[in-house]
């Protein structure tokens, strides 16, 4: 049975699951049961951060156009354009043992593509979640349902894996941003136009 987290909660990952090396991070959401001119397109992305909370370069930003980190530790499995169906809409594989030592945190974010021009935000997205599973056994270990935590935000740092005393932990961050992907990138030290 997976541990269910609330916003801001932190939980052990490798300490309680000894030997865990490969995890699958699944992100899901439901959108747009209404008729309308603009479909929703949600994107997940990953920021690999140093101890200062910043990336060291563009290569530490893993998203649909840069699916694999140079270390081979983080792989984005691709963009789902519609968010249809239950279960994960997008998935990221993380090999914890391959994460470079200078990477202290791995932050997972979901953004709404073109949110401003389509007048969309997370208040119109339902059943959003992040879950961490053991990639080898497919056993779900941690789950955070975003539920009522968001409304007018267009970008959310859903959660982060982070190092703590030689182990990996997970933090259900749940912090929202307006303005989509760009302010999020700047927050993590990436220069974007």
């Amino acid at each position: 049975m997976a541990v269910s987290l609330k916003k801001g909660q932190k939980v052990d990952l490798t300490k309680t699951n000894p030997g865990l090396k490969k995890v699958l991070v699944g992100l899901g959401w439901d959108t747009n049961k209404y008729d309308g001119t603009h479909p929703f397109d949600l994107d997940s992305s990953v920021f690999m951060l140093g101890e200062n909370g910043k990336v060291t370069g563009e290569g530490d930003f893993i998203f649909y156009n840069n699916k694999k980190h140079a270390s081979d530790s983080v792989t984005h499995l691709g963009d789902n354009l519609t968010g249809e169906g239950t279960g994960d809409d997008e998935q990221v594989k993380v090999s914890l043992d391959k994460v470079p030592p200078q990477v202290h945190k791995i932050a997972f974010a979901v953004t709404i593509h073109d949110a401003a021009s389509r007048s969309q935000n997370f208040g119109q997205v339902s059943n959003a979640f992040i879950r961490i599973a053991n990639e080898e056994s497919n056993q779900e270990l941690i789950r955070y349902d975003l539920g009522e935590d968001f409304s007018v935000e267009t970008a959310i740092v859903v959660g982060e894996l982070y190092r703590h005393s030689g182990e990996w932990k997970f933090n259900a961050v749940g912090s929202g941003f307006g303005g989509g992907l760009a302010p999020l990138c700047r927050n993590f030290g990436l220069n974007v136009d």
């Binding site: 935000n121 997370f122 208040g123 119109q124 409304s151 007018v152």
Partner: peptide, 11 residues
């Protein structure tokens, strides 16, 4: 003080 404007998606 007037009503608070709500945005679509706001709760």
């Amino acid at each position: 003080g007037g009503p608070v404007p709500m945005k679509t998606g706001q709760k």
